[in-house]
């Protein structure tokens, strides 16, 4: 493990720590994700001003209030699309597309799979807390079968998306899952995702103790993290398990890592081929 930067320095360099406490509920995993992502950015050694966060809507949507990074915040679900526009127009930027599970896989599902298909060099971080927390706990495409939500008062009847399989099938060239409990691994995976030249998706399983946790009688943040950890299975271990045994488990690890032609690079090759500098009109 790389030497961890002192937190006091991390706060100073990448956060508006004077604006803390955050508006998030006690024990909410969004803060964990912020720390993991900023540490990962820091570990890449790339200049902070080269990073832009594309952010949608959800509890995590106001991370821009706390992060000292350039930020593009537009609307719910469109994060992969606006990140695509930004990256294409500005290939020099490192674009971090922050999304929630509802954001990324419900309203923004179409944009997500197409960004993955294009293999555009964006780092998609999906904070999966299995619910729409900001609107009060409605079920999302990532709510576990049988769990309760304000709009699933008799239990969730729809099977949840496997976000990583979705991304892999759509053509993402880096796909990984990790959890807020496994912070060291999360930092490492996010760094690899940023450094990966292509569409990289990291799903971070996160706790929503006050909304999701209470509704499903999972207790507070501590007991949610314990439960999350108990459900966690590493990819290596998962390979030895039957599908029946893997039901409901959170498999963590890097599922795919392949280098394939990246869309922005391919497009700029076209520009270099057909560009006519004389013709400005």
């Amino acid at each position: 493990m790389a030497k961890l930067k002192p937190l006091t320095e991390l706060r100073k360099e990448h956060f508006h720590f004077s604006r803390f406490p955050t508006t998030y509920c006690p024990g909410c995993g969004i803060g964990n994700v912020l720390q993991a992502v900023t540490r990962a950015i820091d570990e890449t050694g790339r200049p902070p001003e080269s990073f832009t966060f594309a952010v949608g809507i959800g509890c995590y949507g106001n991370i821009g209030n706390y992060l000292d990074f350039d930020e593009l915040r537009l609307s719910h679900g469109r994060v992969p699309a606006m990140a695509t526009g930004l990256k294409l127009a500005r290939p020099d930027l490192n674009v971090i597309a922050m999304m929630g599970d509802g954001d990324a896989t419900a309203i923004g599902g179409n944009h997500l799979i197409h960004a993955a298909r294009r293999n555009i060099d964006i780092t998609a971080i999906i904070l999966n807390n299995h619910t729409y927390g900001m609107t009060g706990g409605q079920y999302s495409p990532a709510t576990r079968l049988g769990d309760y939500a304000t709009t699933a008062p008799y239990g969730m009847l729809e099977p949840a998306f496997d976000i990583c399989k979705l991304a892999e099938g759509a053509g993402a060239t880096f796909v990984a899952r990790t959890t807020t409990f496994r912070m060291v691994q999360t930092i490492d995976i996010v760094r690899r995702a940023i450094e990966h030249p292509g569409f990289a998706l990291v799903e971070i399983d996160s706790q929503c103790p006050v909304i999701y946790g209470r509704m499903n009688r999972w207790g507070d943040a501590v007991s949610m993290l314990k439960k999350q950890n108990a459900l966690t299975v590493t990819l290596e271990k998962a390979k030895t398990m039957t599908p029946e045994e893997l039901k409901g488990k959170i498999v963590v690890g890097i599922f795919k890592q392949a280098v394939e032609p990246e869309f922005t690079g391919e497009y700029y090759k076209v520009i270099n081929r057909v560009r006519r500098p004389q013709d400005a009109s």
């Binding site: 006091t8 803060g31 720390q35 807020t180 993290l225």
Partner: peptide
């Protein structure tokens, strides 16, 4: 080990 630092969702605890 600084796991408290890493797992704090509020960047509130530091080990120095």
């Amino acid at each position: 080990c600084r796991l408290c630092e890493l797992r704090c969702p509020d960047l509130a605890i530091t080990v120095e």
